[in-house]
């Protein structure tokens, strides 16, 4: 039951903030749409209902969002901006081990890696990500992981696993 409420609430919040008004008409359509969508999709979107009862996961996600958008992204952007002008590049594809198990955690790690300029996930096979890296400082999987995805993985495991 909890999963239907949570999915419906998220749809409701997104609908109302996109519409940007609290008129009775908007609230009524938002309610109808969120009820229909959560009834149809909640059973596919939520695998483990117990995790929804732990609100600190959401707090870590919000903290991660701010840290990611400000500190992590800024460092990565400045690195690639520097390389745009110096042309000091050494591209290659390295292997990075992933320990996170759930699909959401893996998607978050993949999204975080690909959204930082300088690294793009090319493929996933047997608990390894193949990452295209603009400056390969070490082809060793563990050292590459330390430079690319260790921080993302720690957060992803805390949030979704």
């Amino acid at each position: 039951m909890m999963k239907y409420i949570v999915v419906g609430l998220i749809v409701f919040i997104v609908y109302v903030s996109f519409a940007g008004s609290t008129s009775p008409y908007t609230l009524a359509t938002a309610t109808i749409i969120s009820v229909i969508l959560s009834a149809l999709t909640a059973k596919y979107l939520v695998v483990n209902e117990r995790k929804l009862m732990e609100p600190w996961r959401l707090l870590i996600l919000i903290y991660y969002f701010f840290k990611y958008m400000t500190i992590i992204e800024f460092k990565a952007h400045m690195d690639v901006v520097k390389r745009t002008f110096t042309m000091e590049i050494k591209p290659g594809i390295v292997k990075v081990p992933v320990n996170a198990k759930s699909r959401y955690a893996r998607s978050l790690i993949m999204g975080s890696i690909t959204n930082t300029p300088g690294t793009v996930v090319v493929d996933e096979k047997d608990d390894y990500f193949y990452v295209n890296w603009i400056y390969v400082s070490s082809p060793d999987p563990l050292e590459a992981k330390k430079a690319i995805s260790e921080e993302f993985e720690n957060f992803a495991i805390k949030i979704f696993d």
């Binding site: 992204e73 952007h77 690639v80 901006v81 745009t84 042309m87 590049i89 591209p91 690909t114 959204n115 930082t116 300029p117 300088g118 690294t119 793009v120 295209n132 603009i134």
Partner: peptide
């Protein structure tokens, strides 16, 4: 414009996509 091939240009495109 400056980067040499597709894979490296993808990183420049990410700059335009996020910041």
């Amino acid at each position: 414009v400056r980067f040499p091939n597709f894979y490296v240009r993808l990183h420049a495109a990410t700059i335009g996509g996020i910041y």
